[in-house]
Design a protein around this nucleic acid. Structure first.
Lengths: 180, 180
DNA sequence: CGTGCACCTGTCCCGAGGGACATGTCAAGA
DNA sequence: TCTTGACATGTCCCTCGGGACAGGTGCACG
């Protein structure tokens, strides 16, 4: 149940509508913590019911902006410091790699090339983001400083996955038993 | 719905019981693709119903070993080559990093140290695994060759996350605006 | 003036995942 | 003989996530 804390954390930066939050999730967090708008609206409703956020204003087009309450801020902080980190990962590409031996050699090559391309592209995108941040394009608030750290993780993660896919192509399909 | 293909893929190596599969999932795949035994037994039942696996033998203690069928092998291969890779990631530690600015400086330091330790330990475990594989402890079958590739991904992934946690500690908590 | 489109907020259903709980079985050791 | 514990298989329930579907609103452009 991290979506609620993800929303609270972003709202801690300032008021936002469900639509804003959905966009921020897909833009910045899309590849790291996907969230669909239906869940966001539902969760915002619950959060409001619990007094962790409140409606700040109602704008045009039925737009409702939410503001985090003191209780909400306290709750994110509690989560950040007291709740144990969930390290669960579920990476289908790595699960698939266990079964590479079932694939034809050139199917595998095509697959690994595509994977490398995919990860390299994502890494580049985040690297570019980081560079723009370092140039000061997004200011120097503590919030963007934290985002810089998150982006760095993405750059490193995707770069190492791209490198891995490249490396995997150099591994012989079936290594013969070595002569002792 | 990757659990079914994960099970099929492992069964492609040879017959196994639900218990065996559960163990393999927690031992090798625990940190990459977690799966609880209730789901495994349920999925095996479904797979048997669809003719993708069949009961090979019934041993002591109600043990039922399953064997993959030709249709099952065809299905994994179809999945590997025809079904698009799901690159979804959901990394709570990275989501949390977006909110580091909400944490006290020394809370954050403790957190990052713990994270680095955690990832370093996992990386070491997999690195050790890889070394044993390279020494030939697990033989030189195509299956272990694929597992070697998977393990390499884990090593690289966890190493880069550990490095990231170390790096994050060197980032100043709140960077002041630079004088132009 | 109209109409299309981006904006904005939802409902609903289904399948997957997490975790507590239940049950039966064989072997080893007190 | 009794009991503990590892082996082995399952049920049940609840929540979360994915995705299809729906509906109302203001603006820009022809």
């Amino acid at each position: 149940m991290s979506l609620r804390h993800g929303l609270l954390g972003i709202l801690a930066e300032g008021p936002a509508s469900g639509y804003d939050l959905a966009r921020r999730f897909t833009e910045v967090l899309g590849s790291i913590w996907p969230a669909q708008h239906p869940k966001i609206y539902a969760e915002l409703g619950k959060l409001a019911g619990e007094g962790l956020v409140e409606v700040e204003s109602e704008g045009p087009r039925r737009r409702k902006a939410y503001r985090i309450t003191d209780a909400g801020v306290a709750e994110v902080k509690r989560w950040l410091t007291d709740v144990e980190v969930d390290h669960t990962m579920r990476l289908q590409p790595m699960l698939r790699s266990l079964f590479f031996w079932l694939m034809e050699t050139d199917e595998l090559r095509r697959h690994l090339e595509a994977e490398a391309r995919y990860y390299r592209e994502l890494a580049d995108r985040y690297r570019d983001y980081a560079a723009r941040k370092d140039r000061g394009e997004f200011g120097y608030s503590v919030q963007t400083q934290s985002m810089r750290v998150t982006i760095e993780a993405a750059v490193r993660l995707y770069t190492s996955l791209a490198d891995w896919a490249d490396w995997a192509q150099t591994v012989p399909p079936a290594q013969p038993a070595p002569e002792q």
